[in-house]
Design a protein around this nucleic acid. Structure first.
Lengths: 203, 203
DNA sequence: TGTAAATAATGAACACTGTTCATTATATTT
DNA sequence: AAATATAATGAACAGTGTTCATTATTTACA
């Protein structure tokens, strides 16, 4: 049956088109400000059509989230390559913070947006899990070589993640304004803070 | 002129009523899910009336934020009273995390919600500033007594805050689901993580 | 006290939002 | 060519923040 094959192909292509368009618009304008109607208009279809391919706006979010986790993992793999576990950890920290600062809207929908996380989705478990796994592996290496002041791998991973996320998200949400620091200086302050943090928990 | 006095009093009373009602509803249902219409209905006035006392929904948010910062500061003052600077720092950490876990909607509008922060508002600068100031003072004490591995006060304050905020906000936004931890265990894990973190940066 | 001016409150209207579903158009099969 | 199955539509629903001409109330003055 060549017809059913083509139909299936067309269906996945349409899903792809919607997903790619959504990602692009989420990146530019943010998740909240991107409406289903505007996505539909961008691909020159009616709003109702979106719902033939995605259950709701949340499902579109999950899809993009999974992809975004994949992107972050790629950067980790490319940029955090040192054989020295501590240096690799520092690289992970730098990469994470820069990723957040350079892709604010993407970071937002990955880690800040309010959404019922469905971790059961394959793409989520795969990408999100591997992303966190990269950090866990890195810290596991540090701990087994007795280079850290924290000995529980999960705990250490959580702490490193939380610190980096805290720095990035407080900045993205403009909460660092209460500190009297110049706007331009902030990226370097965040990076420096993360480094000082890692230095402090390092033996 | 007794009349203008009464008028002014009535005006501030009305503002108070709206602010208090908004706070209550924000706490129960969250900022986003609380509509101007529902606030108006709660105080038995028409929607338009709200706009005679507040410029827009954001202004209502600022007002409540300022009050919330004040609340957190109160808890700091009441619960973080140790004369030992390091123990006081640990108390601050515990208080902050518990505050976030016990008042999720309040924490949300204080530190997570997307909003053009207008730090220039008096109530903001006062409460928000004092709140952060409490932490700064505490860390200043620790550093001057050479108890910390980080020597820059602002940097240390930022780091402690970021870590605590990272832990709380990742949890409030369900991002810790990728770690396989039982839901009930999380509060203790966060507290424990914060303690381990402070222990690690302590000499 | 009666009327004019000032103040306060209203609620319909505007331009949006996500989502649904009866209707219409297109493509495939018989 | 007709019948069927699939795909797309767009109006409608219930909701949002916000504005503003209209109405109601209160105050000030003659």
């Amino acid at each position: 049956m060549g017809v059913t094959d083509r139909k299936e192909r067309e269906k996945t292509e349409m899903r792809e088109l919607i997903r790619a368009t959504a990602l692009k618009m989420f990146l530019e304008d943010g998740y909240a400000k991107t409406s289903i109607r505007s996505i539909a208009e961008a691909i020159e279809y009616s709003p109702g059509t979106i719902y033939l391919y995605f259950k709701d706006k949340d499902e579109l979010l999950y899809e993009v989230q999974g992809e975004a986790y994949g992107q972050l993992l790629e950067v980790f793999k490319k940029e955090a390559t040192s054989t020295d576990p501590l240096e690799k950890l520092r690289q992970v920290g730098r990469v994470y913070i820069n990723f957040g600062l350079q892709n604010p809207e993407l970071y937002d929908l990955m880690f800040i947006i309010r959404a019922p996380m469905n971790v059961d989705e394959e793409i989520h478990k795969a990408n999100g899990g591997n992303c966190f796994g990269f950090l866990v592996d890195c810290l596991s290496d540090c701990i087994s070589k007795k280079l850290l002041r924290i000995n529980d791998v999960e705990q250490a991973s959580l702490l490193v993640w939380a610190t980096a996320h805290g720095l990035v998200s407080l900045n993205l949400r403009c909460r660092l304004k209460i500190m009297d620091q110049a706007e331009e200086a902030i990226p370097q302050i965040l990076i420096k803070s993360m480094e000082d943090y890692l230095a402090a928990v390092t033996i």
